[in-house]
């Protein structure tokens, strides 16, 4: 058990845990507030295919994912090799998958709504 967390003094490890908890809570509260109010400006301004409100949610979610993985799952104490094996693989494949499926979904939506067949009768 030569892990860094074991060599850290327990006080600083605990402090880190509670700090991360506060960060995660604040991010979630911000998400909920924005989701409840849905400010007109954020809903109406579009940036790369979706509203900036949605971008805000996605970015905050990625921040939360970062804190959970790095602090709670101790990714920050793993070796560079292990970190890259897990994180780069996931990030690369997920980005690829999402891009392919969403582009395709957008195209099908065009055909679905712009075609000569009505789907609503």
């Amino acid at each position: 058990m030569a892990h860094d967390t074991a060599t850290h003094d327990s006080g600083s490890a605990k402090k880190r845990i509670w700090n991360v908890f506060i960060i995660l809570s604040v991010l979630t509260i911000v998400e909920v507030i924005f989701g409840y109010i849905r400010p007109r400006f954020f809903v109406e301004t579009t940036f790369i295919n979706t509203s900036i409100l949605n971008w805000l949610f996605i970015i905050l979610t990625i921040f939360k994912a970062y804190y959970i993985t790095w602090a709670f799952m101790h990714m920050e104490h793993e070796t560079k090799g292990l970190r890259r094996v897990v994180v780069w693989t996931a990030v690369f494949l997920i980005c690829y998958l999402i891009a392919i499926l969403l582009i395709e979904g957008g195209y099908i939506e065009e055909v679905y709504t712009g075609g000569h067949i009505t789907w609503d009768f």
Partner: peptide, 17 residues
């Protein structure tokens, strides 16, 4: 994680459609 991403991406696909 890749399995869940597959599900969520499929959800995104249908939602875009």
């Amino acid at each position: 994680a890749l399995t869940f991403s597959g599900f969520l991406a499929a959800y995104g696909f249908s939602r875009f459609k």
